Amino acid sequence: MSKLYSAAEQVYREVKERILSSALPGGELISEGEIASEMGTSRTPVREAFLRLEAEGWMRLYPKRGALIVPVADGEAEHVVSARRLIEAAAVRTVVADPVARAELVRELRACLDDQRSVAAAGDVTTFTGLDADFHRAIVRAGGNPLLDAFYASLRERQRRMTARSLARDPLQLQSIIDDHTRLADLIETGDADGYDAAVVVHMHQVHGLGLPSGGAR
Rank of each mutant, 00 (worst) to 15 (best):
D134N: 14
D134F: 11
D134C: 11
D134R: 15
F135K: 12
F135M: 12
F135R: 11
H136E: 10
H136M: 11
H136I: 07
A138F: 07
A138D: 12
V140S: 09
R141P: 00
R141S: 11
R141T: 13
A142S: 15
A142N: 08
A142I: 07
A142W: 10
G143A: 10
G143R: 07
G143S: 09
G144A: 04
N145M: 05
N145V: 11
N145D: 15
P146I: 06
P146C: 07
L147W: 07
L147K: 01
L147E: 09
L147R: 06
D149V: 12
D149P: 03
D149F: 05
D149M: 08
D149G: 01
A150C: 08
A150K: 09
A150Q: 12
A150P: 07
F151K: 01
F151V: 14
F151L: 15
F151G: 10
A153K: 07
A153E: 13
S154F: 00
S154V: 00
S154T: 05
S154I: 03
L155S: 11
L155K: 06
L155R: 09
L155H: 06
L155T: 15
L155G: 09
R156G: 04
E157Q: 12
E157P: 03
E157L: 09
E157N: 14
E157Y: 05
R158E: 13
Q159V: 09
Q159E: 14
Q159M: 14
Q159C: 10
R160V: 11
R160S: 03
R160T: 11
R160Y: 01
R160D: 08
R160K: 15
R161M: 00
R161E: 02
R161S: 02
R161N: 04
R161T: 02
R161L: 01
M162D: 02
M162Y: 00
T163Y: 05
T163W: 01
T163S: 08
T163F: 05
T163H: 08
T163G: 00
T163M: 07
A164V: 02
A164Y: 03
A164H: 00
A164R: 04
A164S: 15
R165V: 11
S166Q: 05
S166F: 03
S166V: 02
L167Y: 03
L167Q: 00
A168C: 04
A168V: 10
R169M: 06
R169G: 12
R169N: 07
D170A: 08
P171E: 01
P171N: 01
L172E: 12
L172C: 02
L172I: 03
L172W: 01
L172M: 08
Q173D: 00
Q173I: 04
Q173P: 00
Q173E: 05
L174M: 11
L174Y: 04
L174H: 04
Q175N: 06
Q175S: 10
Q175I: 01
Q175G: 06
Q175F: 03
S176L: 07
I177K: 00
I177L: 08
